[in-house]
Design a protein around this nucleic acid. Sequence first.
DNA 1: CCTGATTAGTCACTTTCTTGACTATGATGA
DNA 2: TCATCATAGTCAAGAAAGTGACTAATCAGG
Lengths: 211, 211
Amino acid sequence: MMMWERTTEGKGAASMALRHAVLAALLVGDGSGGDGGYSGYQLAKAFDIGVANFWHALPQQLYAELTKLEKEGLVAGRQVVQETRPNKRLFRVTEAGLAELAAFTAAPSKPSFIRDDLMVKVQAADSVDTGPLIEQLEERASVAEAKIELFGKLLRKMRGELDEEEFLRRGDRIGPYLTCLRGLALERENREWGLRVAAVLRARGPVRAER
Amino acid sequence: MMMWERTTEGKGAASMALRHAVLAALLVGDGSGGDGGYSGYQLAKAFDIGVANFWHALPQQLYAELTKLEKEGLVAGRQVVQETRPNKRLFRVTEAGLAELAAFTAAPSKPSFIRDDLMVKVQAADSVDTGPLIEQLEERASVAEAKIELFGKLLRKMRGELDEEEFLRRGDRIGPYLTCLRGLALERENREWGLRVAAVLRARGPVRAER
DNA sequence: CCTGATTAGTCACTTTCTTGACTATGATGA
DNA sequence: TCATCATAGTCAAGAAAGTGACTAATCAGG
């Protein structure tokens, strides 16, 4: 039997993946945000930095998910009337939401999944023109560089005046710090790999008579 | 204007993402496989090792995609009658398929995306029971360890008797080697991060009075 | 005064993925 | 000999995710 025939085995596990990412992200805004909660809009921004390290979603999806979560009582929203800006709804995680997150955390994780156009292109590098590929690899390396700096700043900000060891021992809210560390490591690898592959392909020159 | 309002901009880019991963994976089977091409079944296995580093897909999707690709002339399948096994169809990439891959390679890449349950859980680590989380982190580290060894073997096999520098200069088919290198780096990071986070959470002990 | 950016969302449609079957045959191991 | 594994697929329903367009207010700059 091969791997895709896991019939009748992971039965009641209920995927609905985005929701847990939303709940986890919302926890951060809850309290530190000052006014207790994130709006959909703010959540979208929080996703862009930080959460983007392990989850990607467009704002439309977040709004939709927030609506569903509210209907199920996992988050509670309250209207905030603003004069200078359009009104907004601030959401915070409810007890039920926290319970849902706890259950999710206790359940087995599905293997992480990655999807990367550039890697597909590198896989085919022996059969196609490498010119544009080299450009994209170097572009990616420089994007990674920028993220590395951004994450460095974020980490410094999160740990405040404590050093890392100290913060991880005694800080509160270390979750986002730990995921950010992973993002940092990832981007470093991204940069190294991009530069290395670009160099290798450059050194080989144009692809020789294929097929 | 925010990022999700890229209206009328990436218009003709045609997503259909899986197809390029399939084409790139098929290229490897084409020739080295001996009998010229991969069957859907073999492709599924190839995806599981190697391609899984940058693309995840279930066999059902691959079969479906192969059918579509054949209808569009990007791959060609031929029936192979077997006595000892069920018959199969071997697929190879056509000229048109290669052209499609080339066009894809030249076009801008969409940002890589990751989705990782475990990271979501770590993000929420300050608010939930960390016991099962620590277990999962250590489990992941050991899975990563196994992959590291597997990739080491794969790489040695691919480069044959040459050393890495030499192979990357003169070897043919370096694409899969380069993506495998990335996979290796990724798994190493996975292992380090998993062990580190598990250690940090363990040292902190159970979560203190939440909310 | 007009343009564009920022805040704050909503709606509808399409594509893709996942899930859970079901069909075959031969080989291998207990 | 019986069970299971490995090969080699196919099908269909439903859930999840992604895409593109649209509304609306305010503010900042030229």
